[in-house]
């Protein structure tokens, strides 16, 4: 397994997609800060708190940006094995389909955590920078660690809600279908996020769970979590079954 991860890492060398992904995750915190500073300038008595910064970042990341970026990255990492035709080289080694698939999943999960960590770190660095000019409240070690844990939990939820797109990628062997699907999902996210049923919709539910806004909804926490979990498992099982049937045409 370690070797598979190592190989996945080598495969990313010089790839533009990874760079695009990282740049993409860097944009969200910047955007959050620009918004907060404009807010502050027009309304100086408003306090800029670490909580509000992270809260905003969660919203943009979990509802809009991260699903998009991750889907593109996931789809590319999986579909390239088809488009480059390298699967036939791997299957004859032999690496079993199941192990190869699990290796990919694990690698994608690690990538997701890496992105969340980058976002967390960027917000933090920017908060300290900002603190030099505009006071940022709640800048304490416990709250920093609290948000780190939240970010990582967010990573888990993001990964869990991505599995259906992995299935689409494997099914269509390309990354057009998952891209269309994720666009639709995000549009619905935007529509639903303020309505009462958002807790039943896995993609907005994961945001609500992390940001703690779920309590405002009628949907209990347990139901949201189980919906996400079931979808994740279904996605993984469907993908694996599909991948195991894979024949090199």
């Amino acid at each position: 397994m370690l070797r598979l991860l190592q190989c996945e890492y080598i495969k990313l060398k010089r790839s533009k997609f990874l760079l695009i992904g990282i740049l993409g995750t860097l944009i969200v915190p910047l955007f959050v800060y620009v918004k907060a500073i404009i807010n502050y300038l027009s309304n100086p008595e408003m306090v800029m708190s670490l909580f509000s910064l992270y809260d905003n970042a969660f919203m943009f990341l979990m509802l809009l940006f991260a699903p998009m970026v991750l889907t593109i990255l996931y789809a590319w990492i999986i579909s390239r094995e088809y488009t480059d035709g390298t699967l036939k080289n791997i299957f004859v080694i032999p690496v079993s389909q199941t192990i190869f698939f699990c290796g990919k999943l694990l690698f994608l999960a690690i990538l997701t955590f890496m992105f969340m960590l980058i976002s967390w770190l960027e917000i933090l660095v920017l908060a300290f920078l900002c603190n030099c000019f505009i006071p940022v409240t709640e800048l304490t070690i416990p709250s920093i660690i609290f948000f780190l844990i939240k970010m990582l939990l967010g990573g888990i939820l993001l990964f869990a809600t991505q599995t259906p797109f992995i299935y689409f990628t494997i099914r269509t062997r390309g990354f057009v279908a998952p891209l269309i699907a994720i666009t639709a999902v995000i549009l619905i996210n935007v529509v639903l996020s303020s309505s009462g049923v958002a807790g039943f919709y896995p993609w907005s539910a994961s945001y609500l769970l992390i940001s703690g806004h779920l309590s405002r909804q009628s949907c209990p926490k347990e139901i949201s979590i189980s919906i996400i979990l079931i979808m994740c498992l279904l996605g993984i099982i469907a993908s694996l079954l599909r991948f195991k049937k894979e024949e090199i045409k």
């Binding site: 080598i10 495969k11 060398k13 010089r14 790839s15 390239r80 480059d84 035709g85 390298t86 036939k88 080289n89 004859v92 090199i248």
Partner: peptide, 12 residues
């Protein structure tokens, strides 16, 4: 084995 067209990772 060598099957059909040579297939490798283009960025490596």
């Amino acid at each position: 084995s060598l099957i059909e067209a040579p297939s490798f990772y283009p960025n490596l």
